[in-house]
Nucleic acid binder design. Structure first.
Lengths: 330, 330
DNA sequence: CCGTTTCACTGATACGGTTCAGTGAACCGC
DNA sequence: GCGGTTCACTGAACCGTATCAGTGAAACGG
């Protein structure tokens, strides 16, 4: 039998004020110092705390920020989610983390669900940035996009994927690799997402022989995709569009008795904390996760507080060389 | 200018019914087939969808399950969160994932926040299972505890830590190790949490020379703790109370130029997907994460649907031997 | 001393649903 | 043909807060 919570009316009665006055007092608005003190005391006495649901219904705000992840199976997105959640907490906001599981339809449903929950803002790492519903959504709630650009958002933290791809492919080329497999993640509904476009363009420029394949989400999925890739005509290097996928390549190589990097070189894209721990360490493109977290939180906070200027932050990657790419001498 | 959403009253007007009838119809209650169809059509026409906030205020239910993690820096808890989130989705519920960041006070605040959000149930992996507020909380919302037992919950998925510790320490002893460091995670307010008690008891029984240290949350924290531990009198083996912590030991060993397992053996506790990918593979105690996810989701669903029987599921671990523990011959 | 501001607070209404206690009509058995 | 159910629906109250348009008193200016 849950003891009923105190309501604002009871506090009003206890202090001899109107509910409205109590509402104002507790938020430090339009009341004298003295009554504020009296209300505070009575509230503490009764163990009163404003009901967030009722407050959300009446005011339309919640103090919450929605975080919609394309696929939480990706370790890097997990790390991002944890960072953002933590960082928002310091601003007295809560993050609601939701996972679209790589399904565009679910992404859409969750985005709308989040808006209906009256989140003050939405941070999105979309698997379908070109979808039409975004523009409509952006009108009813401030959205910050991470990764790919979305039309109509209040802010963006975009990755210079062109530069990232160039960094990776040039490194592979400089190490003597010509036949390279690219392993990207499945889920995007648009067949030619920006990153993929850059791959073909850069490969052309550098005269590389590229084959692109997609991997399902999750370590198991990546491993399966890598297994198939490595058993057919084996490329001299695999460029993975996420460190998580590269982990799958390690696993597949291990299964097949192939050594990294002697039998196959592997290149990642993210720089997840675990990547340095593998043997050999994963050579990857470092996107500075902390910087992204800071930028995203700054943008969404500004937008949620009514800031109106549309901001765009461009993230530039660095090459992090470890041991998973061998130098071909032939 | 966000176009206003349709309300239930507009649907009522469009169909010539009362709002109450519409409310019933959309939930398939107490109405004729024919009106139900008519209401559905009108709702679709107007793009009407019930506002979850208003619904929550009126009915006290949300369809959401709160998931409160002691520390999301722990990769295993991340994996658990993803699994639970996914599994709940299949039952038409949403999971709200929150992270207490290893802080008992914040754990308490978030738990209450979640209750105030009207979650239908709460899954908790507590860092302070003995805290007093739990019993009060359990009266106002069904709680399922994962890991350590909490008094008053509607269900529990507890780990047979006694067995897990025995498994680990016996394996180390059988491999010839006597001087063992135990690395546990910080954050528990109770100095003698159950798992620690088992360690001392089992160590006594097996005649092991044990030293217990705690590691801060996160890979960096674990690495720092391990670095200190390995530079002082180096034990022959380190038993970590989470695979995440073991990763820190790998990192520290690597920094210090020590080889695993030749210079120091490492034993984990969890079996995280990444543990098989390290070199050498991490020998660990496998807790069957999928089984835990299934059990927790089953328990919370039952409890949220009004099931009243208190259920307790005991999880039994397995030893997963890989290559991080060497056999001492001396 | 009077008209205007300012201040601290009140009353009523809005938010968008759910739910409870009817209500009239149709249906039932006898 | 009549009392009793059942059925499909309605009207009103309610959930707990925020907010807007007052209101009376005090402060102020001239």
């Amino acid at each position: 039998m849950p003891r009923k919570r105190a309501t604002i009316r009871e506090v009003a009665q206890a202090t001899g004020l109107s509910p409205a006055a109590v509402s104002y007092a507790l938020r430090g608005l339009q009341v004298s110092e003295e009554t504020m003190e009296r209300v505070r005391a009575a509230a503490a006495e009764l163990g009163y705390e404003a009901d967030p649901i009722a407050r959300a219904l009446a005011s339309g705000r919640t103090g919450m920020i929605g975080l919609l992840c394309g696929s939480l199976e990706d370790l890097w997105q997990q790390a991002l989610a944890v960072g953002i959640s933590r960082s928002l907490r310091e601003k007295d906001r809560y993050a609601l983390i939701l996972d679209a599981v790589g399904d565009p339809a679910r992404e859409r449903a969750l985005a709308q669900q989040l808006r209906d929950q009256r989140v003050d803002g939405l941070i999105v790492q979309s698997i379908d940035p070109a979808a039409a519903f975004w523009s409509e959504l952006c009108e009813s709630v401030p959205v910050v996009a991470i990764g790919d650009s979305i039309a109509g958002t209040a802010g963006e933290v975009v990755f210079d994927n062109r530069r990232g791809v160039t960094l990776a492919l040039e490194h592979l080329r400089a190490s003597g690799h010509r036949r390279i497999s690219v392993l990207t993640s499945t889920g995007a509904s648009t067949p030619d997402r920006p990153a993929d476009v850059h791959v073909t363009a850069e490969a052309d420029r550098l005269g590389l022989d590229i084959e692109v394949a997609t991997a399902p989400h999750g370590l198991a999925g990546a491993t399966a995709a890598a297994r198939e890739l490595l058993t057919r005509e084996r490329p001299s290097a695999v460029f993975c569009f996420a460190d998580s996928i590269a982990y799958g390549v390690y696993a597949a190589a291990q299964e097949l008795g192939l050594a990294v990097p002697d039998d196959v070189s592997v290149m990642g894209y993210d720089d997840h904390p675990m990547s340095g721990l593998l043997t050999p360490g994963l050579t990857t493109v470092d996107w500075d996760i902390d910087g992204i977290v800071r930028a995203a939180v700054r943008l969404i906070s500004a937008a949620a507080d009514g800031g109106t200027r549309r901001r765009r932050v461009m993230q530039t990657p660095t090459l992090r060389e470890r041991g998973s790419v061998t130098r071909l001498t032939s």
